[in-house]
């Protein structure tokens, strides 16, 4: 029994690393990163070979992938979606405006980057990011899971 307790967290970490499911949310971006993120699903990039699945419901996801800066209207929604994701959870900020507000910083309806609202685990810069960059970001995040 004692031995099992020690093994269980290892198994869970192993399982999480093997199948990180992502939830994509556009928090106010221009679409550029979104279409690059979606092209990850297609045959040219095919992220499913890493066990990554684009999931539609926050309750099934491990990683929240945000594209775009946080707008005022989206802010409560983003917080709610983050709260709905079961622990442990990670946040990936994709794109320059998602990292810092980027070109939109200073606008009246923009709060700034995702880290103004949520704890971000990995930043993927680029305007817009290439699909390879996004894959790299997700893989690096998964590798960092302890």
């Amino acid at each position: 029994m004692e031995k099992n307790k020690a093994i269980l967290p290892n198994i869970l970490t192993w399982a999480r690393k093997k199948s990180p499911w992502i939830l994509h949310f556009n928090s106010g971006g221009c679409n550029g990163c979104d279409i690059e993120l979606l092209s990850l699903l297609t045959p040219s990039y095919d992220i499913e070979r890493f066990g990554i699945l684009n999931e539609a419901s926050p309750r099934h996801a491990d990683i929240l992938v945000c594209t775009g800066p946080v707008t005022e209207q989206v802010r409560p929604r983003l917080k709610r979606i983050y709260d709905q994701i079961p622990e442990p959870k990670w946040v990936l900020a994709v794109g320059s405006c998602s990292c810092s507000g980027g070109v939109f910083s200073g606008a009246y309806n923009i709060l700034g980057g995702i880290d103004k609202l949520l704890p971000v685990d990995m930043y993927v810069p680029g305007c817009p990011c290439r699909p390879e960059t996004i894959i790299d970001g997700i893989i690096k995040l998964v590798e960092s899971i302890q």
Binding site: G28, T71, Q73, R77, F104, G106, A107, Y108
Partner: peptide, 22 residues
């Protein structure tokens, strides 16, 4: 309005050349 960033206002505060990027 979920993606409203206020680009029209922002464009009035930047120069013509910067606006091409925006």
């Amino acid at each position: 309005g979920y993606v409203h960033r206020g680009i029209e206002k922002l464009a009035q505060q930047r120069t013509y050349v910067q606006n091409v990027y925006l």
